[in-house]
Amino acid sequence: MDVDILTVMVVDDSPIIVKKLSVMMQTLGYKVIQTATNGKEAVAAYPQCKPNVVTMDITMPEMDGIEATQAIMSEFPDAKILMITSHGQESMVLDALKAGAKGYILKPFQQQKVYETIQKMCKRKIDLQFF
């Protein structure tokens, strides 16, 4: 898996966050193959693009990130979903993990934290060049 470029779907209702994460993923050597602005779009897009990793916001219109994670995980139990959210409540973290999320990062996010979490989620080596 290490030699392959890791593919990512970014899900967030903020255009700034979508763009920021997309640029960050490119810097880290990952490839953003899909973006979505709410949970409903993400659930619809996942089967088509089947990314290695999904970054998922929680508070979004139409369908929130917890519901979307549940929906994706019920169909694709191997999906790797990383919550990137400003919602810091412990209960929300637990809800996200119960829904099947593999990681949880609080906004504002740092590149190093995003990188480390994704590498661990995908059981890839940590490359120190990104620190």
């Binding site: 700034i16 919602h87 810091g88 209960s91």
Partner: peptide, 22 residues
């Protein structure tokens, strides 16, 4: 994007407040 910047500021701050208000 200017509107999104305003939205991101309040979203991040109030999101963090949920920890204090639990």
């Amino acid at each position: 994007y200017r509107d999104a910047a305003a939205s991101d500021v309040i979203n991040t701050i109030v999101g963090h407040c949920t920890i204090d208000l639990l």
